[in-house]
Design a protein around this nucleic acid. Structure first.
Lengths: 172, 172
DNA sequence: TTGCAATAATTGAAAATGCATGTATTGTCA
DNA sequence: TGACAATACATGCATTTTCAATTATTGCAA
């Protein structure tokens, strides 16, 4: 194998980042603009935040959950989520009860009022998705969704630096 | 036109949301997990936040920008951006100067130190993207990126009720 | 030209967020 | 079984973000 006298062509390619072709950038942009518009148009009239909507949607989709699982499913930090659930309970959209099998756990569920709210929000949510995906073929949209699921799985399975708790364990 | 005695078939389909097939949900999840891991692993050692990285990356990719355009390109609120730029200037990564043609505008640019930082961060950024996209074919990845650009364009072009932030078209 | 609306950036104050820590409970293994 | 680690949730606190002005400048129409 020949050792090149010069660096391979297009050395600039590594030093420069074309953001419009950079996946994390594209994903962030799309995520922000969708959340903004859905929040302003659909959620604001109901006086709920996008974070609250995410919690309600997960509860409606996946059923009652422990807070730690809700945090995972919504990508919201556990401490933030604890406060959001407090607000949802105060507003009457969710209930919080100690788990039967473990009294350190808490189970969050939708109330009837919460279910009714989600039912009203689902059609505009679907509409927003349809408008976002306008011009994409069914195949393309399917590819996008499948790939996003795969990407999430990749990131989740990635070996990462030890977190605080395991650092403490390793240090002992 | 006949009025059906019963509701059309599969009424549940509209009332229930399957989040794992819901585009906004998938996009948000992926965006959050990528930002988290890139922030913890790559940015934290440099004492840089993900928001600061986004600003630096846009400046490196698109050149010096007015703050309002930076806000658009980074999906960061203009007031938040103003404070982030202040921090970047204080840290020596960026410069802020009044525009030549309009003294109400400000032009933010990378300093040499800022460029050097971005140059160091680009390789791990590329690595992260590659790991995220592991298992996707080149074609699939291309479809995903193209569709995300289209989706962003769709959302931007969407008719929405008047809001404070002006809708400014950015060529990305 | 002048007056007024629009634009760009900043800032005060409130709300939201994230990290570290605290508390209570459960799991485990020596 | 009895320590001790791990887990689940809540909370204090500092930081960050957002919304609503505020200031300064520019564009534009009468």
């Amino acid at each position: 194998m020949r050792i090149p006298l010069f660096r391979e062509k297009t050395p600039v390619k590594d030093a420069k980042l074309n953001l419009s072709d950079f996946l994390p950038y594209l994903v962030n942009r799309v995520g922000v603009i969708i959340a903004e518009q859905f929040g302003e148009e659909t959620l604001a009239p109901h006086r709920i935040s996008i974070a609250m909507w995410r919690v309600l949607a997960v509860l409606a989709s996946a059923g009652a959950q422990r807070q730690i699982d809700l945090a995972d499913l919504t990508s919201i930090d556990a401490s933030t989520l604890s406060r959001i659930v407090t607000r949802l309970v105060r507003l009457g959209f969710a209930s919080r009860a100690r788990s039967e099998n473990s009294s350190r756990e808490v189970v969050v569920a939708l109330t009837a009022k919460g279910s009714a709210l989600v039912a009203r929000l689902i059609p505009p949510a679907r509409d927003m998705e349809a408008e976002a995906a306008a011009g994409l073929s069914a195949e393309e949209l399917a590819v996008v969704k499948r790939c996003l699921r795969r990407i999430y799985g990749n990131m989740q399975a990635r070996p990462r630096r030890a977190s605080r708790s395991s650092v403490r364990r390793a240090a002992v």
